[in-house]
Design a protein around this nucleic acid. Structure first.
Ligand SMILES: [Mn+2]
Ligand SMILES: [Mn+2]
Ligand SMILES: [Zn+2]
Ligand SMILES: [Zn+2]
Lengths: 146, 146
DNA sequence: TCAATACTTAGAATAATTCCAAATTATGAA
DNA sequence: TTCATAATTTGGAATTATTCTAAGTATTGA
């Protein structure tokens, strides 16, 4: 991450936090930059471990608090696949998730412009938002299996 | 549930369990009939409470075991929406879930014949199965809000 | 009939998350 | 600047959902 990226990151972060009624803190900046750095949908625990590298005294409770703040002000999404720990994703474009059953990796998959042409809801149901998870096997693992 | 339904239920259950390498037990029958009776996607805890009505000495551990066996032999599905307890669904047709944000109810929604026409996966990804959750507001709650 | 196996059960253990209350830090009005 | 107020961080306790364990029961089929 170069200086310009850092600047925009911080600027964006700062603005989003304040308009969301939060303060911008060193902890929140670090946690957010960790999310941006490696977009592999880490769990809170993984974010904690990564954040400690640059901020060794941060606590788990704070990581949960920061992630919560980031989600609330629209800078990150929570991703829940089956059981197990919630994962976090800083990609705020509309997208869905591909989960490789073989290596447990989660990939972002872009959605087409037209939202879900197929599904027709019964009368009276109003959909606010769709969540699509695709289970399967990723290219890497498909290659290995052969 | 009349006698004929009971008979078919048991027959189906029995066959599925045995072909799956499980024994048919009173506990498994009760748990399965609880799932069939009220298709509101109960949690293990809710299944436990309902099953106790006709089988007061059943334990929570057994409910977990039974649900697990039912899932393994293809008589029920696990449904995970956001955080919180896993829910169980005996509807084995391909369907997705509508979650009402207002009253927390989970509804089954049938999917069209053609599976997911919209999404195109990046090269090399092989999808095994899609999981779609729709968040929104159900007809009942929409009416109340007006 | 009896040994092997499957099943049920209570309770302990674990994992993920939330709650709590005290210490620290930031803010902004006087 | 100074001080009260509010927000944030923190360690640890509490909670929730689930899994594990080990002992007791029941079932099966040689
Ligand atoms: Mn994502
Ligand atoms: Mn269902
Ligand atoms: Zn993979
Ligand atoms: Zn509703």
């Amino acid at each position: 991450m170069n200086l310009v990226e850092k600047k925009t990151m911080s600027g964006d972060l700062n603005e989003r936090l304040t308009t969301g009624g939060f303060r911008s803190t060193p902890q929140r900046e670090h946690v957010y930059s960790v999310l941006l750095q490696k977009r592999d949908h880490p769990t809170a625990e993984e974010v904690f471990i990564r954040t400690k590298k640059t901020m060794p005294d941060i606590s788990m409770a704070t990581v949960y608090n920061c992630l919560d703040a980031l989600v609330k002000c629209g800078l990150a999404r929570q991703v829940t696949l089956d059981r197990g720990a919630t994962r976090f994703c800083p990609n705020m474009r509309e997208h869905c998730h591909f989960y490789c059953d073989s290596c447990d990796t989660v990939f972002d998959v872009d959605l087409p412009e037209k939202p879900r042409p197929g599904i027709t809801l019964p009368h009276g149901f109003k959909a606010k938002h769709y969540e699509v998870a695709i289970h399967g096997i990723c290219p890497e693992c498909a290659k290995k299996k052969k």
